[in-house]
């Protein structure tokens, strides 16, 4: 049953482009699937080897893993690491900080990427379009350490260009980098600066596939610019937006580690601590791989539930899910 509903839902979205399918007999279908399955073989082997086989090692979440003793030789501790994690007095704070940062990324950074892609798409001068596109994607290639030290430079008290600017506007001498109220805005700002341009690439690829005749027809029908964007451009990237949204909900607990770790300090740590930095401190820095794996497992379960849930929701609203 599930497959049937799924097939209907999926074909619903692309029904416009699908021809009514002829009923093929079993033999023909078999022949067809053989080829398809053959094409998939390398991919399936890849997933078995490099994605599923290592999961055998994830059992260290239930052990006190000591590398020298090997996975099976390490003592079994059951749910101990999970208990430690969930009963940790900092847990509510970590969850809150993580969710706030995830929400900011989802509701600010993600829409900005779409807006940016649309604005770029509206540029008529091709050379300008290409130049701007290339410029905005440059920051993606600077590592977080470089981005954070550049931020330090720009907000340096006394002579940082942005510090001077904000200082003149607000008339206070705040150390923006240490002020807890400024932590989240700065994180979002860095994220937007570094990744927006890069994120537009995928939408621009989708927009490249849009049938130009549609625009011409719309213009002839007297559609204004905004109407064209609303009725042609946006629908053509809708499925990409939905897929990206679904995939992002699965990553909601993964705020990334490096940027936040580098931006946090003694004065803003109450708002800066997230699961990923916590795992780094406890798991990696202290060398407790079992604990880090247990937290990863707990996060993954939440991620799986969220992805499958939003995917189900998307289909409920007759959109094309991811599968």
């Amino acid at each position: 049953m599930a497959t049937l509903i799924e097939a209907q839902a999926a074909s619903g979205a692309s029904a416009a482009t699908l021809r009514p399918q002829n009923r093929r007999n079993v033999r023909e279908t078999l022949a067809r699937y053989r080829w398809l399955l053959f094409l998939m073989l390398p991919g399936i082997i890849y997933f078995l080897l490099f994605r599923f086989w290592p999961m055998y090692g994830a059992q260290i979440a239930f052990r006190d893993y000591i590398p020298f003793l090997g996975i099976e030789g390490s003592p079994w501790v059951g749910w101990e690491h999970f208990e430690t994690f969930f009963t940790n007095p900092d847990f509510p704070r970590l969850l809150r900080n993580t969710l706030i940062l995830a929400a900011l990324s989802l509701f600010i950074a993600f829409p900005l990427t779409i807006v940016m892609a649309l604005l770029l798409n509206e540029l008529r001068l091709n050379i300008l379009k290409r130049t701007v596109q290339t410029l905005v994607y440059v920051p993606h290639f600077l590592s977080w350490t470089v981005v954070v030290s550049l931020t330090g430079l720009l907000f340096a008290i006394g002579n940082g260009p942005l510090w001077t600017l904000l200082n003149d506007v607000m008339g206070t001498e705040t150390n923006f980098l240490a002020d807890p109220a400024w932590f989240r805005p700065l994180i979002v700002l860095q994220d937007v600066w570094k990744n927006t341009g890069w994120g537009t690439i995928i939408f621009l690829a989708a927009l490249a596939g849009v049938d130009q005749e549609q625009y011409e027809a719309a213009i002839i029908d007297g559609a204004g610019r905004w109407q064209r964007v609303w009725h042609i451009t946006l629908p053509s990237i809708r499925s990409t937006i939905i897929v990206l949204l679904i995939l992002q909900t699965g990553q909601i607990l993964n705020t990334g580690f490096e940027q936040i770790y580098l931006m946090s300090n003694a004065l803003n740590r109450t708002v800066a601590d997230v699961f990923d930095t916590y795992v780094y401190f406890v798991g990696i820095q202290q060398g407790s791989y079992s604990y880090a794996t247990a937290v990863g497992l707990a996060k993954a379960i939440v991620g799986v539930i969220l992805i499958f849930g939003t995917n189900w929701l998307a289909k409920r609203f007759n959109q094309q899910g991811i599968f």
Partner: peptide, 9 residues
């Protein structure tokens, strides 16, 4: 002390 004692690289 320098005002950015909490954040200086």
């Amino acid at each position: 002390t320098n005002p950015d004692y909490a954040t200086m690289d």
